[in-house]
Design a protein around this nucleic acid. Structure first.
Length: 371
DNA sequence: AGGGTTGATCTCCAGAAACC
DNA sequence: GGTTTCTGGAGATCAACCCT
C-alpha cells in the first residue's frame, strides 16, 4: 500500500525512482524495492519521501483509502479557490444525501480503463496513441460514431457522473473531479468560462473518471509549462483524451478536406469549433496537432478575436455567453422529491435549494423547481 | 541509453546463548 | 548476574541484468 502510493505519486509528478532516491538520499534500488513492497522504509526515509511530495509521513501510513480522490484542472490555486473546492465538496454531500433520501442513487456505469505502461509516458507519440485509443474506445462504447457531442454534461450524467456547474468568477480553476467508492463521481465545472472551454474541461475530467477514479488519493492539479502544456503525464493524457474525444481525427479531417482544404482562416476555425462545441483555442491547437496548420499560422490565428468573427458569421457568439450560476436540474428534482415524500422539511428544502422561504413558495407554486 | 529489477553482499542492531 | 559472543533479520548498496 505504501509502495503503491509512492509509485502513483511519483508517476503523477513525472519523477523517476532515481530522482526520488537522490532527493531522499537513498539508492534507487531501495526506492524500487519500497515501491514493489519488498522493503519497508524507515520512518526517517518515509518522512523524506513524503516531503518530496509536500506531504506528512502519516499520509503513507494511513491504510484506509481517502474518501475522495480529487483532480483539479487549474494552473494555480489560491485560498479563495480552496474555499470554492470546499463548498463543492459540501455540495456533493448534500447531493448524495438527497439521492439516499429519495433512493435514486446514481452509480458509476463506465468501465475503468487501465493506465498506460509508465515506460511510454516520456514518449509523446506513444502517449498520444494511448490517449487517442482511450477516447476512441470510449466513443465506440457510447456508440457516438464520428458525430460531435452535443451535450457532454448530459452524456456524463448517463454514465454516472453528477455534473455541478458553479460560477467561480475570477478563479483559474476550470474544473474538478472527485470520487469516492461509497458515493460515486462528482464533477465541478466553472460556469464562468465559455461553453467551449467548459466542454473541454468536462472531457478532461471525464478522462480522470474513466481511468483514475479508483486510485483513492488526490490525483493532482494541472501544472502547465511555458507553452501551456500540462507537465504531469496524467494531466497531459487527460488533455489529449479530451481533444480526441471531442474532436476525433476522422471527423476533423473529413470536414477540413470537404470545406476548408486550402484555407484554414479564422472563419473556418470558428465554423469547426461551433461544430464540435469547443473553444476557438482548443480547435486551433487540435488543428495544429493534426498537422493542418503550423506554428506561425497558429500564432496568427490566436491573435484574432473569435467573438468578432463569430458574430459577423452567425450574428451571435458563444464566446461571451456566461452561464448563470444555477443548481443542477437533477439535484433540484431530487430535493423537491425528497420534500414531497416527507423525507426533508420545508426549511431543509429551502436550505438545499439555496433560497429563502418566500422565494421557495413562489417558485414551487409555479409548478416545481425545475430551472 | 535510461529506467527499473534482481541477487549477492555488507552493515547495523536487538535478542538469545554461552561463558566467566 | 554481568559481560561477551553469536545469530538472524532489516536496511541499504553494488553490480549485473532486463526491458523498451
Amino acid at each position: 500500500m505504501i509502495g503503491e502510493k509512492i509509485k502513483s505519486l511519483r508517476e503523477s509528478e513525472a519523477l523517476t525512482q532515481e530522482e526520488i532516491a537522490v532527493k531522499v538520499g537513498v539508492s534507487k534500488e531501495f526506492i524500487s524495492m519500497v515501491e514493489s513492497g519488498k522493503r519497508n522504509p524507515s520512518l526517517e526515509v518515509l518522512s523524506k519521501i513524503a516531503s518530496v511530495f509536500s506531504k506528512e509521513a502519516s499520509y503513507f501510513m494511513d491504510t484506509k483509502r481517502e474518501d475522495f480522490a480529487l483532480a483539479l484542472r487549474t494552473a494555480q490555486i489560491n485560498e479563495k479557490d480552496k474555499e470554492e473546492i470546499r463548498k463543492f465538496k459540501e455540495f456533493c454531500e448534500d447531493y448524495y444525501f438527497l439521492e439516499e433520501a429519495t433512493g435514486e442513487i446514481l452509480h458509476p456505469i463506465a468501465p475503468i480503463y487501465p493506465d498506460p505502461p509508465s515506460s511510454i509516458l516520456s514518449n509523446f507519440s506513444q502517449t498520444y496513441q494511448y490517449s487517442e485509443k482511450l477516447a476512441l474506445d470510449e466513443r465506440r462504447r457510447l456508440s457516438l460514431g464520428e458525430e460531435p457531442i452535443r451535450d457532454i454534461f448530459l452524456l456524463m450524467e448517463t454514465q454516472g457522473v453528477r455534473v455541478v456547474r458553479m460560477n467561480m468568477e475570477e478563479s483559474p480553476v476550470d474544473g474538478a473531479f472527485i470520487y469516492s467508492r461509497d458515493k460515486g463521481a462528482f464533477m465541478l465545472i466553472n460556469s464562468s468560462q465559455s461553453k467551449g472551454r467548459q466542454f473541454f474541461t468536462a472531457a478532461h475530467e471525464y478522462c480522470h473518471y474513466l481511468k483514475d477514479r479508483e486510485k483513492g488519493y488526490p490525483i493532482c492539479q494541472v501544472i502547465t509549462n511555458g507553452s501551456g502544456e500540462p507537465k504531469k503525464p496524467i494531466e497531459r493524457i487527460a488533455n489529449l483524451f479530451a481533444a480526441n474525444f471531442l474532436m476525433p481525427e476522422a471527423s476533423v479531417s473529413k470536414l477540413v478536406s470537404l470545406y476548408a482544404k486550402n484555407r484554414l482562416e479564422a472563419k473556418e476555425v470558428v465554423q469547426l469549433k461551433r461544430y464540435f462545441g469547443v473553444s476557438y483555442q482548443a480547435m486551433i491547437y487540435r488543428l495544429k496537432d493534426l498537422g493542418y496548420i503550423r506554428r506561425p499560422k497558429l500564432e496568427k490565428l490566436l491573435q484574432i478575436d473569435p467573438a468578432t468573427v463569430e458574430e459577423a458569421l452567425f450574428g451571435f457568439t458563444e464566446e461571451r455567453v456566461k452561464q448563470p450560476d444555477r443548481l443542477p436540474e437533477i439535484y433540484c428534482k431530487l430535493a423537491v422529491q425528497a420534500y414531497t415524500q416527507g423525507k426533508i422539511s420545508f426549511e431543509k428544502l429551502a436550505e438545499l435549494l439555496k433560497v429563502d422561504s418566500f422565494e421557495l413558495i413562489e417558485r414551487l407554486s409555479k409548478g416545481g423547481f425545475i430551472q
